[in-house]
Amino acid sequence: MVSFLGLVAVLGGLWLGLSGHYTPLITWLGALSVILSSVLAVRLRTLDADSAPFAALPRIVVYWVWLMVEIIKANWVVIKACLRANLDINPALVKVKTACESDLAKTTFANSITLTPGTVSVLLEGDKILVHALYEEGAQPEAFDKMDRLSKWAVDVRGAA
């Protein structure tokens, strides 16, 4: 129920933000489409605690800020690699073990790895992620430890259960 109301709130906010026309008729049509989309989402069973993690929202925001800083740092490295006259890249495939347990936490961790330029998650098997990195030195398994712990802390609500 919480996730349903959250979905309605998010869709309503999105509609209000994108529309810009607030005459009564159009507002009613918007409310109707929001309700219709929510009911369809419930009927398709795409709505569960994993797809609507509203309980963990504050921690996700904190994690997001930390991730942005990481992305900026990693961007600088890749931009330098793109522009250097001689290509000094040293690509490597690394296997990273994750402590995350729920699907959503694993997805968050793998997507964070992909989002940071210089590392891409290639394959997810159980609790191991195959990562392709631009520089072997920057992609030792210890380098992902902090990201792993933080994504577990931010998203893995049911990890302890």
Partner: peptide, 17 residues
């Protein structure tokens, strides 16, 4: 960049920053 996977890294610069 020489191969597909390294090109992916370069493309993610556009996607993020």
């Amino acid at each position: 960049f020489p191969d597909f996977y390294t090109r992916l890294h370069a493309a993610s610069v556009t996607d993020t920053s």
